[in-house]
């Protein structure tokens, strides 16, 4: 356990020290501000009803979860794996008293921490923007709903991250992994739209599963089914990528 903790602390420190975290923060902030300005503009300029302060964070999430969040997740995942393969710095930790399994798990956990921090950051700033610019009052129930929406989005994001980890283990170049990930993501999204009978098994269709969590009648069965499907994807991707990682010579 001590080895895992040390590896996790190191991975988080490395992510923090690289500029990418700062870039993700700034771009998320810009996104929220532009979104809020657009809504304010729509309301005052065009007379259209924008969103209330409680709907704005959910609106931001619906856009972010299909655009910048998968993008940053991909960048960080590729940084954690492909960049280290390329720079030959994996062997730094592989010759320390920590097993490959603990090291691999620590990297995945660090990516998860990054995703959570990113989600919470977007949530707090979209809430703040909603409160400042939209005049309606907010309720505790609405706040809890928003919090749940953001937190449950972690699970499909982690599945996406693990799919990218799998790609990093059989494609050498980080750029190659990045384009393959985008390509696969778009293809799966399109398949989900065109062949809607298959969308139930594609994890890309589950990125907006937070909508199920805030329905007036809680669809327990649907949520459970999607959760189990995502767990299956997680197990498959983790096992596949760890197997390849463990076999590698450095």
């Amino acid at each position: 356990m001590a080895g895992f903790k040390a590896a996790l602390t190191n991975e988080i420190e490395k992510l923090y020290k690289k500029k990418k975290v700062l870039v993700a923060t700034i771009i998320s902030l810009i996104f929220i501000v532009i979104g809020q300005l657009a809504i304010s503009g729509m309301r005052s300029g065009l007379g259209l009803r924008g969103t209330s302060n409680m709907e704005f964070p959910i609106l931001v999430l619906s856009v972010v979860v299909n655009t910048i969040l998968p993008l940053f997740t991909a960048l960080v995942t590729i940084d954690c794996f492909s960049a280290e393969f390329a720079q030959n710095t994996m062997k730094i930790t592989l010759t320390r008293p920590v097993t490959r399994l603990k090291f691999f798990t620590a990297k995945i956990t660090a990516i998860m921490v990054f995703i959570i921090v990113n989600l919470i950051f977007v949530m707090i700033f979209s809430l703040a923007a909603g409160i400042i610019f939209n005049s309606n009052s907010f309720t505790l129930a609405a706040l809890i709903k928003i919090f749940i929406c953001y937190i449950v989005t972690l699970i499909p994001m982690m599945i996406l991250a693990m799919m990218i980890v799998l790609f990093t283990n059989f494609i050498r170049s980080g750029v190659g992994v990045f384009f393959l990930s985008i390509f696969v993501f778009i293809i799966l999204k399109v398949i989900g739209l065109i062949f809607s009978q298959y969308s139930g098994v594609l994890f890309t269709s589950m990125l907006d599963w937070y909508n199920l969590w805030i329905m007036s009648t809680f669809p327990f069965g649907k949520i459970l089914r999607q959760f189990i499907l995502m767990c299956s994807y997680g197990i498959l991707f983790f096992t596949g990528s760890y197997y390849l990682f463990d076999k590698k010579d450095f």
Binding site: N10, K17, I92
Partner: peptide, 18 residues
């Protein structure tokens, strides 16, 4: 090998945690 984006001290600090 060492991490190019960490200082010499920070590199050794990383290794020391194990």
């Amino acid at each position: 090998e060492s991490y190019p984006y960490l200082t010499a001290y920070e590199n050794l600090k990383q290794f020391s945690r194990y």
